[in-house]
Design a binder for these strands. Sequence first.
DNA 1: TGTTAGCACTCGTTTAACGTGAGTGCTAAC
DNA 2: GTTAGCACTCACGTTAAACGAGTGCTAACA
Lengths: 342, 342
Amino acid sequence: MSMDARKFRILQAIIDDYILTAIPVGSRTISKKYEMGLSSATIRNEMSDLEELGYLDQPHVSAGRIPSAKAYRLYVDQLLRAGKIHTDDAASLREHFTRRTGKMEDVINRAAQVLSSLTHYTSLVMSPKGGDMTIRNLQLVPVTQNSALLVIVTDSGIVRDAVIHVDSDLDADALYAISGMLTQRLTSHTLAEAQHVIRAMTREFAEKRAMLSGISELVSEVESQQTQSKLAFGGTSNILSFPEYSDVEKARGFLSLLESKDTLLRLLEQHQNVAFTVRIGPETGVPELRDCSLVTATYTIGDHTQGTIGVIGPTRMQYGRVLGVLSAMGEQLTRLFAADKE
Amino acid sequence: MSMDARKFRILQAIIDDYILTAIPVGSRTISKKYEMGLSSATIRNEMSDLEELGYLDQPHVSAGRIPSAKAYRLYVDQLLRAGKIHTDDAASLREHFTRRTGKMEDVINRAAQVLSSLTHYTSLVMSPKGGDMTIRNLQLVPVTQNSALLVIVTDSGIVRDAVIHVDSDLDADALYAISGMLTQRLTSHTLAEAQHVIRAMTREFAEKRAMLSGISELVSEVESQQTQSKLAFGGTSNILSFPEYSDVEKARGFLSLLESKDTLLRLLEQHQNVAFTVRIGPETGVPELRDCSLVTATYTIGDHTQGTIGVIGPTRMQYGRVLGVLSAMGEQLTRLFAADKE
DNA sequence: TGTTAGCACTCGTTTAACGTGAGTGCTAAC
DNA sequence: GTTAGCACTCACGTTAAACGAGTGCTAACA
């Protein structure tokens, strides 16, 4: 016995129904609601087969069937293969991004907001790693006598900054001069490379060593601060509207997971080079997400720097729709950052 | 019949017990657990009086009593009057703030984190309004051809920034020159005043009008962006660990309230000139917070600019402890910003 | 006059029993 | 291969009964 076209059609109907209702699907429901010219008894036989094949689970003997992770996997692969990702939302998405801003944080927060309100799931938006970004421009702004704000503008018009410690009493003009010099040297290097360049400079200008070493130290500080990507959430409370999270303990586990951020960052950083990722329940490898699916997509800043956006919802997620929204949002972000460039 | 010392002692015992256990307190519990040399019957009479006075509620006739909002109010007023705010946590708090940073956002995020982990409630940390802060220094950093980052350093070493649109093609040097001029004119004015000053300048330098008007427009943009205080949360999932929020719908309402932020901002902005605020249940005026209390304290940046920190938990909150932690944190933040100043 | 023991009463909670119905698996006939 | 029929299972909702925590009231006591 193996999977044939009819079994697949039935399985699809079961998944569709379960995604909609969250209640186990019975044979009668399929035979009547999704008229496929078969009696419930026939469906029953097929369902029995599908269970044996591992696509369906039965909560208890007198209940209907629910799709297994394996079933969702098949369903999603089918979706992806068919390229059935409808970007209907592209238009409505665009209008959310009329106000321009170059601040990474604002952009990802807004994007997360929009994503969650469109999907009604919890959304994640991750900024690209700072280390990969190419420096276009760099400037030190005096803050206090001992500290300055190091502003780094990247290739694609994204601003990153950090307050750093400055030993000597440098006035605004001195800092501006240094900024000019540093910009000249560091332009078109990545943040990760900046360290080495500065170290080379230190050797070159022995006399200015003291000052440069201070700056080198602090560029490294900036780098380490910026290396970890920022993560923004949207619709964190949405998960509570799904019956699979009506158990408060489960909901708390989920929300705690969001709060700590690092597990999710690790998840999002995997497979960053594929356009879409769908991880279903156990595939995430995170116990708290046993009943969740994580769908991600990427967007591009400049030529190769990539950021990730994603949606977390119950495994019975509206994959088609979510993939569509993510795809549209990815394009939108890519376009947004590209536009900022010129 | 009125409130005497014994009634008050009994009420206090009831509140203490209810805060600990969250189950209605019976007369026997008080007479045995908090031995006050009285039989349960006597306690019963007193409790009946306390109910009549409005300090106790009875969920149903065969259950114990629970404190009313009025009771908590009395309890808290007593706490505040006695000045019994123990800052035991001051020391453990200090070590959380060794790393210095001038970025407002980092500070308030970290503070929220610490607050929630110490109290096990949900914490709020609000940055002061930007408009009230005095400008020390101001600098434009080129980002793209059409945009620049306007960095504003305030009196107390706090950095605020925003990406603004620049019409003409100004190079780095031109922007730096403008920055110098603006700094000279705007130093020791508040952000709110900056608008007027710039408008005056526009009249003065008719020839540079085009450029200045552009900047004026954008300082106002910055101001409006910064006028709304930033709000950081900590421990948002903590609320789910209390039995009063075991109802998922209620929990969802609470979390949605956090997500939208504006209601809370409004609450936090009230009574900003008092050291402590305790709003109990209905006193908040927010339906979603009917069973919650909001405790706030303030911290100071510079001379008069104030920020607010707060904790939200069930009405049966450990008020003494929370007030202590908030007080310590307020001092800590005030000290942190003061240190950054010199 | 305040305190306490005693007792009837209330009412939410728990447990068990029971009927209901959705859904299945199997068999036999088409 | 499909389907009608039927016995069977089992979660779920309802009802009833026992339970017990806690109260209010009364009467006696110090």
